[in-house]
């Protein structure tokens, strides 16, 4: 699709606006791994508000799909790959204290050195992983 970049830009603006709403409204950083991780390991505060955030995060794409704007994840069906990847993303983002939204969107926009370093390392590791999988293993 030729206009993928335009939808990307528009979607990005929406994501950033969501982050701005959470920051200016509640003084919180919109990091997906921090918000969910805090709920999972019990370190987070404001459980009710966190659940409302998740309801919006899950509900908006569900409503868009119902309205006819369908999407698929196209994820692999290799179960060991899904488990391994999920574990790595879960442990890694909590060790690093952030993921694409926290370190990437919120960190880079704050000119945070930690955000920049994290972003360079996870994109670098992602590029190497994808390249090795495709060229080396044909996945």
């Amino acid at each position: 699709m030729e206009i993928a970049w335009l939808w990307g830009l528009l979607g990005g603006l929406l994501i950033g606006t969501g982050g701005a709403v959470l920051l200016l409204g509640a003084g919180r950083i919109m990091g997906a791994s921090g918000i969910v991780g805090g709920l999972v390991d019990g370190s987070g505060t404001h459980r009710g508000a966190t659940l409302a955030f998740l309801a919006g995060l899950i509900g908006a794409p569900a409503l868009l799909s119902l309205a006819g704007w369908s999407a698929t994840t196209g994820a692999t069906s290799q179960i060991w790959l899904l488990i391994l990847a999920g574990l790595a993303v879960g442990v890694g983002t909590r060790f690093a204290n952030g993921c694409t939204s926290g370190h990437g969107v919120c960190g880079l926009s704050r000119l945070s050195l930690r955000g920049l370093v994290a972003t360079l390392f996870y994109i670098g590791a992602g590029v190497i992983t994808v390249t090795v999988l495709r060229i080396g293993l044909g996945l």
Binding site: G86, A88, G90, G92, A96, Y122, G124, A125, G126, L133
Partner: peptide
């Protein structure tokens, strides 16, 4: 932890293409 965690995250991200959000 920032560097090692981010590398681990990047590997998982590359394996399937999903991050937490």
């Amino acid at each position: 932890p920032l560097v090692i965690g981010s590398i681990l995250f990047g590997v998982g991200w590359g394996l399937v293409g999903l991050c937490p959000g």
